[in-house]
């Protein structure tokens, strides 16, 4: 009995954390000023949210197959989310969808300028 009660409480709190994280991601999309900062809100807190949601299900029904499946889910999400963020950030930077007045330092500027002036054929990988 008590074991089940504790398990319920853990599940509930994990689901709550997951929901809060996804909520924060949604609000962040509106509140942050430019594409790059929005990406932070949109792609990151939900990783923790996803982990908590998976954890909640795993705690509620502990079976080996669920654990295995969740490991796969988290591995794939963990590998792909940063790449999505990177691709969008790269495109946003090159197409000037950012507020330069909010940056206190920008060490990429000179490099992009250099590439755009000359050696672009050798340095930039093909983009679609």
């Amino acid at each position: 009995m008590t074991g089940d009660g504790i398990r319920e409480i853990i599940t509930i709190s994990l689901v709550m954390v997951a929901a809060l994280m996804c909520c924060a991601a949604g609000i962040g999309l509106f509140r942050f000023p430019d594409v790059l900062s929005r990406l932070h809100a949109a792609t990151k807190p939900q990783i923790l949210g996803l982990m908590c949601a998976c954890g909640a299900v795993a705690v509620n029904s502990p079976r080996i197959s669920t654990f295995l499946l969740f490991t796969a889910i988290i591995i794939f999400q963990g590998l792909t989310a940063p790449i999505t963020a990177h691709m969008v950030a790269r495109a946003a930077y090159r197409s000037n969808h950012l507020r330069r007045d909010l940056l206190i330092r920008d060490e990429l500027e000179t490099r992009v300028e250099r590439i755009e002036r000359g050696e672009e054929s050798s340095k930039t990988p093909p983009e679609s």
């Binding site: 790059l36 932070h40 990151k44 990783i47 989310a81 940063p82 990177h86 930077y93 990429l108």
Partner: peptide, 10 residues
């Protein structure tokens, strides 16, 4: 990139 607060741009 996984850790919130930082994104690799290039």
């Amino acid at each position: 990139s996984l850790v919130p607060g930082s994104i690799v741009v290039d």
